[in-house]
Write a protein that binds this DNA or RNA. Structure first.
Length: 215
DNA sequence: GTGTGGATTATCT
DNA sequence: GATAATCCACACC
């Protein structure tokens, strides 16, 4: 479970940037049409998806943006979670400097490309091991555990349409949080679906056992 | 507040 | 050559 955990980045000059993960999307591997590894596709770009859980997968898109994912499968099991939004908590000054154009602090990291810009994440961080890196990791203190009632889910963003994978509710967020990238269609989870889907959410966004860092 | 279109390039077909 | 897990500015309500 990544929601509620904190992404931490330490810059070369020692400045520390961090934010609480408030929105994610699951990309569940070779069966998922919207996933870069669909059908077992393996290229230089998505090679990191085939690493073991804890690897950081950064890719470039739309000619000008970076997006970042946490790989969460075993080796050769290309499954990852896209980080879509953070609530900035440390280093706001540096984030504002990098995100000229963000009018409010809540918009510093309210999108997958925005958070990469704010957190100084680009190609350099592709393939970083979040478990051992000294300048990029995820902290998951027990106090950050999020109750299932605080989670909303909906269809993933920007992946076209036309098959069941575009409709599956694989986007997750903290209910009503001001830093979400896009509002969720309806701020709730239908009772008939909640139990099964929340269990699915936890399975697909979990990257390993608890502890100081995710692995 | 919502909706539209432009920016700009790695990657794969 | 087409596509893309996007963002931003601007127009309009």
């Amino acid at each position: 479970m990544l929601l509620g955990c904190t992404l931490v980045r330490v810059l070369a000059d020692g400045v520390r940037l961090s934010g609480v993960i408030v929105e994610t999307e699951a990309y569940v591997g070779v069966r998922d049409r919207a996933c870069h590894s669909f059908g077992g596709r393996r290229t230089p770009r998505n090679e990191v998806m085939y690493a073991r859980a804890g690897a950081f997968y950064v890719y470039f898109t739309y000619g000008m943006h970076f997006c970042c994912n946490v790989v969460c499968g075993e080796a050769d099991e290309p499954v990852a979670v896209l980080l879509r939004a953070l609530e900035p908590t440390e280093g706001l000054e540096a984030m504002r400097a990098r995100r000229t154009g963000a009018r409010r602090d809540r918009d510093l990291c309210s999108g997958p490309a925005k958070l990469c810009q704010a957190m100084a994440i680009d190609r350099e961080q592709n393939g970083v091991d979040l478990v051992t890196s000294a300048d990029l990791w995820i902290e998951c203190p027990m106090a950050a555990v999020v109750g299932t009632g605080s989670i909303v889910r909906g269809p993933r963003i920007g992946i076209g349409s036309g098959n069941v994978w575009t409709r599956r509710l694989l986007r997750f967020g903290l209910r009503g949080h001001p830093c979400l990238s896009v509002p969720f269609p309806r701020e709730g989870v239908r009772k008939s679906e909640s139990t099964r889907q929340v269990l699915g959410a936890r399975a697909s966004t979990r990257t390993g056992e608890g502890g100081g860092r995710v692995r």
